[in-house]
């Protein structure tokens, strides 16, 4: 098993982060194509694509605690988090590759952050500490790179208290690891 990885890609980071949190040893090989395609997991003689599918596959490995397994009906949250990550990844690539600095936070980024903030804020009032319920899961792992790397798009976090809270509790998880652009401690 190994990951075709691009260190600075947010979707690849989600997979490395998930493996680290779940205690899975995941060798990586640098593959510039992953900047476009996102991460690819070579496993059982085949290739698995898409961060949500890869992370779900990792949760089914024998060494991974059952706590990481999906609760009933949680697939929708994984799909939602994956499409949010795709959106951010797209916007972030556009911002980082832009020849000129852009003026202010684009409206699409505000929309994405508002959607995430609404969900995390409602969950918190319902005593649901993680997107995935009582224990963090695939949806949470997919969400973290979005909210942490939103800093690359100059999103001011004072506007999003539930997201701040999520970042703080996520960073305290055993096995948490960073990537360039995500400060170690906060």
């Amino acid at each position: 098993m190994r990951l075709r990885d691009w260190a600075l890609d947010d979707r690849c980071y989600a997979v490395r982060l998930g493996a680290s949190l779940m205690g899975v040893h995941l060798p990586t090989i640098t593959d510039a194509a992953a900047l476009e395609t996102g991460p690819v997991l070579e496993i059982d003689g085949g290739c698995l694509r898409g961060p949500a599918d890869i992370l779900q596959r990792l949760t089914s490995l024998p060494e991974v605690s059952r706590d990481w397994h999906l609760g009933i009906g949680e697939e929708r949250r994984d799909a939602w988090a994956e499409s949010a990550l795709e959106q951010l990844s797209h916007l972030r690539r556009a911002a980082l590759l832009a020849a000129l600095p852009t003026d202010g936070v684009p409206p699409s980024v505000f929309r994405l952050m508002t959607e995430i903030e609404d969900r995390l804020s409602d969950d918190r009032l319902c005593d649901r500490p993680w997107l995935s319920g009582r224990h963090p899961g695939v949806a949470d792992i997919l969400l973290f790179p979005i909210v942490a790397l939103s800093q690359d798009l100059e999103v001011p976090l004072d506007l999003y208290p539930a997201i701040r809270n999520f970042i703080r509790q996520f960073k305290a998880l055993p096995g948490f690891m960073t990537m360039p652009g995500v400060p170690e401690c906060h």
């Binding site: 976090l157 701040r164 809270n165 703080r168």
Partner: peptide, 17 residues
């Protein structure tokens, strides 16, 4: 500037005015 619950014990948070 913020809700009290959004600045939990032993943490810091940004605000702007």
């Amino acid at each position: 500037l913020a809700l009290g619950m959004d600045v939990p014990s032993e943490t810091a948070a940004p605000a702007r005015l």
